[in-house]
Structure formats: structure tokens, C-alpha cells
Design a protein around this nucleic acid. Structure first.
Lengths: 225, 225
DNA sequence: ACAAAAGTGTTAAGAATACACCCATGT
DNA sequence: ACATGGGTGTATTCTTAACACTTTTGT
């Protein structure tokens, strides 16, 4: 295959796709149809063949097994490369993982038999391989991105209320904020603006809608934590 | 090689080794002996064969081409996986990069013909491939680690003066600190302690020596920047 | 005595925290 | 009229930033 005796290791990709559902952070999993870990849940992943970039492989695998077209994601970022032991029966493999963020994602089950589903991160099913560790690594990275940057553009709809914004932070960071302090601080960062509209829903005062001034992810002057 | 037609891409590893020399951040480079980029300087890197973890491959290559035994490094951390184009004449390759930190490192030229040398980051020679971009990515990561953690344990000797500590920060972050504020803040973090000794050198008052209370890298309560 | 780096405190401005009530709407 | 979530201000504490002189040593 390659001249002069060089044999590369098996290369795989994994995707960790997060979205918020009902103020909770959720992650996309598929059900393993085969041993090892038959009946366990796993991150959508698969082989990376020669001639394919890791990002291409990730897109292909995510769509084929996870039922999510990569074009629906608002952010994709390479996470870490794991030297996975025992992932492949053929031996040692190297796995490049990507984190993806979006909102309103629903897996298209069309041609997959892998039952892709979003699970709330606080209540994950039994996980194959070291995927529990990978998810918590990804969650940690997401936490850190939220603290330092405007990453939540990728988790929220274009127009959102301050309460939704605060809930997104609370869901990812796992603790609550004081409403007045949160609003004062976020508004002082000068990264969001009112759309002018408001949203009526339920028997209470309508909420003003905001949008991010920039759709790209920016570094914050003062961090949240 | 592998059954059922799967052919993995070429996998390589690269190492970005930093150390401080005379209050300047330096990086280890080797001179390319062959085309492409013959005569340019490059990060020590090489092939990762099947059956070898990326970290093992990185250790092997760093010692063979860079003349630095990995045991001399105080910290090794995976940095990023680049889908390198045109790194290998045989086509698309995937390269896992590692950042290493140490002090007092001197390349052992024994069996290498690659002239490994440390170059000050502000004055790099002409670089092969996209290695200039990789070095600045690594530098950015190092900056961020220094701001948030006690990563400079890996850059300083066990006992160091506060002036040395401050110089390390200044060399990596690229800007100066006020001496009184820096000392006050660092001491208030409660992560270093006096050794009890001091160091006389030159025609001036001797400097007290300090050590980190923990040799592992800890998160700081308040950041530097 | 002088040159050179080590060491040291105070003040002012800005940021973070703690905390409780009124507002606009639907039923 | 009441229930529901939206919206707002102040006082205190902590952190940061700006700033200059004295100490100890070697020559």
C-alpha cells in the first residue's frame, strides 16, 4: 500500500454534538448495534480513510450515523486526538475528535440504523468505550469557551431573551447567576443589542429580544464563571 | 495490510519544544536536509507507525531528530492535529502535534544530521511548511496556560527569584509588568514559598529564592494578562 | 561613593457580589 | 385580583492599576 514498509495506524474520528434542549445541555449519541459494547450508547464516529481530511471524515460520519448534516451546525471545533486502546478489534487506533454546537437539531433517521438521539448531559445512558470521559472533556472545553468568549451565539437562536441567555450559561456552567448582576455584566460587555422586538408567551410581561452584534465568536473582556 | 479495503492516511507527529534562554522564549528547530524546503528550518517531526501511540512516536522522533530525550521535558501536552497538505510527497497526511516545555535543554547532536538548535521565538529563521503558523498557535496556547495556571513551574528551575518569575511571564506574554503589583499578586495567590536561601550574583543586593508549593500545574484563582 | 538589581505601601478606580421590589401580561 | 416571569438600583467588598524610593551588595 505504501512503499518502504511504513504502515500507518488506524485513524478514526468522533463527534461530540451539543445543543440546548429545554434549558439543558444535550449530547448526540447512537446505539451500538454490534459488539463490543452492543446495546451501549456511543458518540458518532467512524473510520478516516486516506485522501480524506479529518474534518471531511467527521462530516461524512456524522451525517451517515448521527443523521445530522454538518451544515446545520453553528460551530465545529477540533477537540483532542485520543490514542484509543481497544476501540478497534484490529488493535491500537488514533481518534481525532470534534465538538459541534447548534440548536434545533433533530437527527434524520433516514438511512441509519443507529438510533441517533440527544441525551441530557446530566442523565446519560451507559456509554461505550471511554466516551464518558470524552464527553466530560468536551463539556469542560465548552464551559471554558463560554466563560471567555461569545460561544453561546452557537447555542442560541438569532434573537433571544436575556433569560434564555442566562439559562444557556447556567445549563453549561452548571450553576446559577444572580439575574441583576448577570444582565448588568453582559450588557456592559457591549456584545449584544436589542432587536426592538419582544416576545409574548404566557401570562406575564413580554420579554425583550436581543441579538449578538457579531455572529463570529469573540473574546470577552471580562470572564464569566 | 488491513482487510476489507480500509487504507488509513499517513500519520505524522510534530513537536514544539519551548524553553527560556536568557529571558527569551526559544523553540527547537532542525534544518531540513532534503527537498521539499531543503535548507529551511522545521519542527522535529516524523512518521507515526501502526502499533505506536502518538506520544511514543513523538518521543522517538524528538530524541532521534531533535536530540532531546523526552525525560528531560518538564511538561508535554498535545496541542492540535493538523491536516497537513503537501507535507508528504505521497499526499495528504495527518499530523498530531505536541508542545513540550523544559529548561536547560541542549540538543545532543550524537547521531542526528539535522542540526537541532533553539531559536528565539522573536527571531526565527525561514521555516518549512506551515510551521510558522504552528509555532504561533503553540505560543498562543502557552500564553493562555501561563495566564490561567502555574505552567511556569515547567519553564523555571526549582528555585527561582521573583525577578526570574516575572521575566518568564514577560518573555511568554510579550509585555511588561509592574514589579510591585506582580509580586503582590503572585504572593497573594499562595502558590510559591521562600526556600530560605538567597542568591548573590553581581554588585547588588542578593535575591531571595522561591519554589512552587506544588510541582503539578494548578489553576490560578486570578489570572494574569 | 557609586552602580546595579532587590525589595517595599498607599491610593484611586473599577469589578464583583449581595440583595428585594415593581411591571406587564393572560386568565 | 392574582399568578407568572420580566425588569430594575444601590451599597459593600475585592481586585486592579498607577506610582518612587530605600536596601544590600560588589567594585
Amino acid at each position: 500500500m505504501y512503499e518502504n514498509g511504513y504502515v500507518p495506524p488506524i485513524l478514526t474520528v468522533d463527534s461530540i454534538i451539543f445543543q440546548l434542549i429545554e434549558n439543558t445541555l444535550n449530547v448526540l449519541l447512537i446505539e451500538r448495534q454490534r459488539e463490543p459494547f452492543k446495546g451501549y450508547w456511543a458518540l458518532p464516529g467512524g473510520y478516516n480513510a486516506a485522501g480524506e481530511t479529518t474534518r471531511e471524515a467527521m462530516s461524512r460520519v456524522l451525517e451517515a450515523k448521527g443523521g445530522i448534516p454538518v451544515s446545520k451546525l453553528a460551530l465545529i471545533e477540533q477537540l483532542y486526538t485520543f490514542d484509543t486502546v481497544a476501540r478497534d478489534p484490529r488493535g491500537h487506533a488514533v481518534s481525532v475528535s470534534y465538538m459541534g454546537l447548534g440548536r434545533g437539531l433533530t437527527p434524520q433517521l433516514g438511512n441509519t440504523t443507529q438510533h441517533p438521539r440527544f441525551f441530557p448531559v446530566p442523565h446519560l445512558p451507559k456509554l461505550a468505550y471511554d466516551h464518558a470521559a470524552i464527553i466530560s472533556y468536551a463539556h469542560e472545553r465548552l464551559r471554558s469557551k463560554l466563560e471567555h468568549t461569545t460561544t453561546c451565539v452557537a447555542l442560541l437562536p438569532e434573537a433571544f431573551t436575556l433569560t434564555e441567555l442566562q439559562s444557556a450559561y447556567e445549563a453549561v456552567l452548571g450553576h446559577e447567576f444572580d439575574k441583576r448582576n448577570f444582565r448588568k455584566k453582559f450588557l456592559s460587555l457591549d456584545m449584544i443589542e436589542e432587536t426592538g422586538d419582544s416576545r409574548r408567551e404566557g401570562a406575564h410581561r413580554p420579554a425583550r429580544l436581543y441579538r449578538f452584534k457579531s455572529k463570529t465568536i469573540e473574546r470577552l473582556v471580562h470572564n464569566f464563571d
